[in-house]
């Protein structure tokens, strides 16, 4: 669906059911260069189980009007505007990679608005490799190649997919590529410049779930350990065989973790 935030058009998918703010809401936030398609299966699962879901394209990404926002802080503010515009009450966030930084920043600024938060494959900060930053500025095709190559674990490199017949790596590549080339560059700079992770994590008040990938080359073990250390009492799960793109690489295990956590902390009515 399309809706307006401060006069700009925002696109979001809603998991195949109309958006309904009277239900508990799950917002899915994608990582750098990603969009709503990253969450297709997971969003549908919750939408058909008494939740209302929203997978927004960030400004300047795929179907949402630009320009791309250049900082995590600006994205957290934008997320708050989305929540306000849609009058969302019982909110859970599921975030991947860069989306986790946005979620952290949002949770620290608006702690009373969140029922729960699930952070997948992220640290407290995401310093970006110089090669990648430079490529994102000068040679977007090479940058997308690096994102996909480093992002996916073995299953992605073997072109497995969450749906039989699909190559998740190629879907990911095409998704990033059809995004405006400026979107990925803006995202990577936002990640690289973000410094407030520690303070934001300390200010979080809602239950937090952290899901870690054992073969993650973008958020390595040291980074995820720092995140876990600074969050108040997180529930931590580790999936050893997955790479960074965990929701695509091990969708069944990821869904089970998300389901158990969100059903517990943001329960939908059994009516």
């Amino acid at each position: 669906m399309y809706f307006d935030v401060k006069g700009k058009r925002v696109f979001a998918t809603t998991g195949g059911k109309p958006f309904d703010n009277s239900k508990p809401v799950v917002i899915f936030l994608a990582g750098s260069g990603g969009d709503h398609t990253f969450w297709g299966l997971h969003a549908r699962f919750f939408a058909f189980r008494k939740y209302s879901v929203l997978c927004p394209d960030a400004p300047g990404h795929t179907h949402s009007a630009g320009p791309a926002l250049g900082s995590i802080e600006a994205l957290a503010d934008w997320l708050n505007e989305v929540v306000t515009a849609l009058d969302i009450k019982d909110l859970s966030i599921v975030a991947h990679s860069q989306g986790c930084l946005v979620a952290l920043e949002y949770a620290s600024r608006f702690p009373h608005k969140l029922r729960s938060m699930s952070l997948i494959t992220s640290g407290l900060a995401t310093p970006v490799n110089d090669y990648l930053l430079k490529a994102a500025n000068d040679n977007p095709a090479a940058a997308v190649d690096m994102m996909i190559s480093w992002g996916f674990g073995p299953a992605g490199h073997l072109h497995q997919g969450p749906i039989p017949g699909n190559s998740m790596a190629r879907v990911g590549y095409t998704t990033m590529w059809r995004n405006s080339p400026r979107a990925l560059a803006a995202d990577l700079h936002a990640c690289n410049d973000y410094r407030n992770g520690k303070a934001a994590a300390a200010a979080v008040q809602c239950p937090v779930q952290v899901i870690i990938a054992g073969k993650d080359r973008m958020a390595p073990a040291k980074a995820t350990a720092t995140l876990v250390e600074h969050l108040p009492d997180p529930v931590v799960a580790r999936i050893s065989e997955s790479g960074h793109m965990l929701p695509l690489e091990v969708p069944d295990q990821c869904r089970t973790l998300l389901k158990d956590f969100i059903f517990l902390h943001n329960p939908a009515s059994q009516a």
Binding site: L41, H159, G161, P164, G165, N166, P251, R255
Partner: peptide, 25 residues
């Protein structure tokens, strides 16, 4: 269509799926 997986071999089949993903790659 909330998750992948196989229900009936007219729609998807694990062996055929390997071939499909190989050709896509």
């Amino acid at each position: 269509l909330e998750r992948g997986g196989h229900a009936y071999s007219r729609i998807t089949n694990p062996t055929v799926g390997v071939l499909e993903q190989r050709i896509a790659a």
